[in-house]
Computed example of a mutant assay.
Amino acid sequence: MNSLRLLPRSTMRALRSSRRQLPSITRTFSILPRLQTQGPPATPDAETTASQKGNSPAYLGTTKRLPEFNLVDKVVLVSGAARGLGLVQAEALLEAGATVYALDRLEAPSPDFSRIQKRAETELGTSLHYRRIDVREVDELNKIVQDIADKHGRMDGLIAAAGIQQESPALEYSRKDCDTMMSINVTGVFMTAQAVARQMVRFEQGGSVVLIASMSGTIANRGLICPAYNASKAAVIQLGRNLASEWGQYGIRVNTISPGYIVTAMVEALFEKFPERREEWPKQNMLGRLSRPEEYRGAAAFLISDASSFMTGEFGFLLLTNIWAYANEMV
C-alpha cells in the first residue's frame, strides 16, 4: 500500500476504475468455453474414434497433428520382427496406428514381443500378430502374405528386416555359408518384397516397401571381416533401386535403410569376444557413438507413411552419420 501511495493520482484513479470492472471481465471469460463449443461438431479423427471404443491410443499422426504419419487402417508386414531392430520398428508402426504382422523363422518371438502385443491391443487400439516363416520357403511365404491381404482386403507396407551375419575371412569362407547368406539376405528379401508387391498390385492401392540394407553395403568395414554379408547388403541396395524403378507404375515406393553399427544383444556378445571394438567402432562416425535400435523407429514410420509419398529409389537412408567412416574404411 505504501508503494501505491507514491503513484500519480491519475494512475490511482485508473486502477480503481479497472478494479470496479473486474467482475464483468470475469463473467465474460466464464462464458467463453460455452461459446467455443457452439457450431457444427468437428469431424472425429482416428484418435477420437478409438477412444470411443474404450481405448486410449496415442497415434503418431492424427487429423490434429501430422496426419501424413497416420497409419490407421493400414496393414504392414515386418520380416525379422521377432526381436531386435525389426521388432522395434514394428512397435513404431503400431504407435502410428497400423495393424502389423511380424514374420520370422523363430519358433517363438522374444519375451518383449508379448509386451508390445499387449500394448497394441490395450493402449494403441490396434494389433500385432506373429507368423512363423523362413523367407527361403517361398511358396509358404506367398501363401501367408496372400492370406493376410485377403483377411484385410489390402496390403500397404513392408519392412524387410530379416537377415543373418557371419564373420569369416574371405580365404576361409565356404560355398555353403556364402549360399546361405545370399539366400536369406538377398533372395529372401527379394521374395518377401515380391510377395507383398503382388498384393499391392492386386488391390490397386499402391504402398511402400522398405528394405533394410547396411552401411556395410557401401563401405568395407575396418576390423569386421564379413565379405559375404557386405556383398549381400550391397545387393539389397541395388535391388531397392531396381524395384523402385519397376514398381513405380503401380504406385509402389521402394527405399532402403542403411544403419550403422547398432548396439544389440548380438553386438554386446561380440564385444565380449572382441573388447577393442567397443572402443574403436564409436570413433568411426561423426557422432562418436554407436546407434540404438530405437533410433530407427522414426525412419520406419516416415518411409511407410505418406510423409515420404514422393520418395522412392532412395538408398543408404540414415547413412550420413557414417560418411566419415566411409572415408576412413576405404583408405
Rank of each mutant, 00 (worst) to 15 (best):
M1N: 10
L4R: 02
L7H: 08
R13H: 04
L15A: 07
R16K: 12
L22Y: 09
T26W: 04
T28Q: 08
T37Q: 14
Q38W: 08
G39C: 15
P40R: 15
P41Q: 10
A42F: 08
A42G: 13
A42D: 09
A46R: 10
T49D: 14
K53T: 15
G54R: 02
S56F: 07
Y59N: 12
Y59L: 12
T62E: 03
K64W: 00
E68N: 13
L71Y: 00
V72M: 05
V72P: 03
K74T: 13
A82M: 07
L85C: 06
L85R: 04
L87T: 08
A90S: 09
L103I: 14
S110C: 05
T122V: 15
L124G: 00
L128E: 00
I133K: 05
E137N: 12
V138F: 04
E140H: 10
L141H: 03
D147T: 11
D147L: 06
I148E: 04
I148D: 03
D150F: 02
H152R: 05
G153C: 02
D156H: 03
A160S: 14
Q166N: 02
L171E: 14
E172T: 15
E172M: 01
K176Q: 08
D177Y: 00
C178G: 12
M181G: 06
A193L: 00
A193M: 12
Q199S: 01
M200R: 08
E204Q: 15
Q205S: 08
V210W: 00
L211V: 08
A213W: 04
G217C: 11
N221P: 07
V236G: 01
I237T: 13
L239Q: 04
S245P: 04
W247S: 05
Q249V: 13
Y250T: 12
G251P: 01
N255A: 03
N255W: 00
T256G: 02
I262Y: 01
V263G: 09
A265N: 06
M266G: 14
V267E: 10
E272W: 02
F274M: 07
L287Q: 04
G288V: 12
R289W: 05
P293W: 01
Y296I: 08
R297W: 05
A299V: 14
F302G: 01
F302A: 02
S309D: 13
F310C: 12
M311W: 04
G313I: 11
G313C: 04
L320Q: 15
Y326M: 14
A327K: 13
A327Q: 13
E329H: 11
M330R: 13
